[in-house]
Design a protein around this nucleic acid. Structure first.
Lengths: 187, 187
DNA sequence: GTCTTCCTACCTAACGTTAGGTAGGGTGGA
DNA sequence: TCCACCCTACCTAACGTTAGGTAGGAAGAC
């Protein structure tokens, strides 16, 4: 149960941050969900900042793996780009949550520096993946792939934010469809 | 000083929420900034929820006035649409803040219902304005103006979120330029 | 085999701090 | 006089965190 506890804490903390933010993550509530007491969390993580950084790091690693899998599914860069928004859809379906990095970006100034760094790394990783696929798909000139990648990332994150405010997955899908219609994302 | 205190509280609270979120708004810090003591705030607002709702309502009213002014500046709907993102730029310039509604959307689940309602109203107001201008500009079919308006609102909010994470106003401008290049927003 | 030692994993109790909120009093202008 | 405004003093609940301790297992020496 030792390794499982650490993993259980990480998983539960991720969901709680996605729903309530880093500031809304309480050790007592988190521990209760895992089935231990709050101080026992300190056996696995030195403090809240370290837990937050670990959650964000794991989130980035999982996303990187998912994107790598998406790219390896087929050689068609346009097709994998078209499926990129779907990686953000899941959070909305799962209790109207947001991308971890979006929630944390909203409270960025109050985040411990190590957590801030993880948030930036997540964005950089997504943008790098998008830029690679955009370049491979010939969707933009080589020097324009980076800016375009940032635009796609921002637009999809914004769609998720709007959908949480009202409309849910249906609103998210409609906004993404508009992006496709405008040519921001390939169909 | 009575009316001024209320206004000073509203203004300071708005800036603090834009920087730290509703959860990060503390009566003690807020009062200190205004130059009074924390319990004196309760003379102007019954509780935190009412203060939050008042801040959000005022924010929406101010934004509505700014958008109305933008629309009245000239009859060219395309031109006023092109200047829409600028209304979001100011927050970033002012201490790397976000749109009040974006910050609050990130912590929506923990907001008192009246505050949630104000956040939704702000989004609806923006979308209605955009839909009107999009229809007037002939940028989309009449039945497509609403979805397109939601896409523009989401995209601009996302650009602001990305810019806060890193890059600031320059990143915001670059992303908006990409939106223009893709045809999501008129130049 | 068993005794000692050290470990992991978790506990209870309490720390200092901060949160929103309340009670009741003083003061100044209409 | 009275009421708006702001004060001091205080409350309870919750926060992250620390101290100190217990249960149980692995490992080495004899």
């Amino acid at each position: 149960m030792t390794l499982n506890s650490r993993e259980a804490i990480l998983a539960a903390a991720r969901l709680r941050v996605q729903a309530h933010g880093y500031g809304g993550l309480s050790f007592r509530d988190l521990a209760a969900e895992v089935g231990i007491k709050a101080p026992s969390i300190f056996h696995h993580f030195a403090n809240k900042a370290e837990l937050g950084a670990a959650v964000a790091r794991r989130y980035r690693e999982d996303a990187a793996a998912a994107l790598a899998a998406l790219a390896e599914e087929g050689p068609d860069a346009r097709a994998s780009l078209a499926r990129y928004p779907a990686t953000f859809r899941g959070a909305l379906e799962n209790g109207n949550r947001l991308c971890l990095a979006s929630v944390m970006a909203a409270e960025l100034a109050d985040l411990p520096p190590p957590v801030q760094a993880e948030v930036r790394d997540f964005a950089a990783m997504n943008i790098a993946w998008l830029a690679g696929r955009i370049a491979a798909a010939g969707l933009a000139a080589p020097e324009g792939a980076g800016p375009r990648a940032r635009a796609v990332f921002a637009a999809v994150a914004g769609a998720q934010l709007l959908a949480r405010g009202g409309g849910g997955v249906a609103a998210f899908d409609a906004v993404v469809d508009s992006y496709r219609a405008a040519g921001l994302i390939p169909s």
